[in-house]
């Protein structure tokens, strides 16, 4: 993985964790996985609020923006309100939501398209 990609991936992890913590979710299982050319950020959280899931989908399913890969990504992780993910959403291709009993599994997909 290139240095720039490492920076972005670590910032994304920090940003996503900050987001869930800011919304009061402390029991979080996290896994980072490489599947072919995709990097998956998998969060397993109990009883995740459905409105929040919709907000996450809205932000994370927006089109990736190439410019943010070099400008603005440094602001991630500096969360200052509960509804951000503004920048993270532009660095993630999509989010896949699954339910496992009481747990919601969110898989944020970042495709290796640019770096």
């Amino acid at each position: 993985m290139k240095k720039q990609e490492i920076k972005i991936v670590s910032k994304l992890i920090k940003d996503l964790f900050s987001f869930f913590l800011a919304h009061g979710y402390v029991d979080i299982n996290f896994e980072l996985k490489q599947v072919e050319e995709n990097l998956l950020f998998i969060f397993k959280i109990k009883n995740l609020n459905s409105e929040l899931i919709e907000l996450i989908k809205l932000k994370a399913n927006r089109e990736r923006e190439l410019e943010v890969e070099t400008y603005g990504f440094e602001l991630m992780g500096d969360i200052d309100s509960k509804s951000e993910l503004e920048i993270a959403g532009l660095l993630i291709d999509e989010v896949i939501v699954n339910q496992e009993n009481d747990f919601i599994v969110l898989s944020f997909v970042r495709k290796d398209r640019y770096l």
Binding site: Q4, L66, E67, E69, T70, Y71, G72, Y114, L115
Partner: peptide
Amino acid sequence: LQRMEYKSFIIV
């Protein structure tokens, strides 16, 4: 040098 597309730097 960074082996990145020029357009990824378009804001700068």
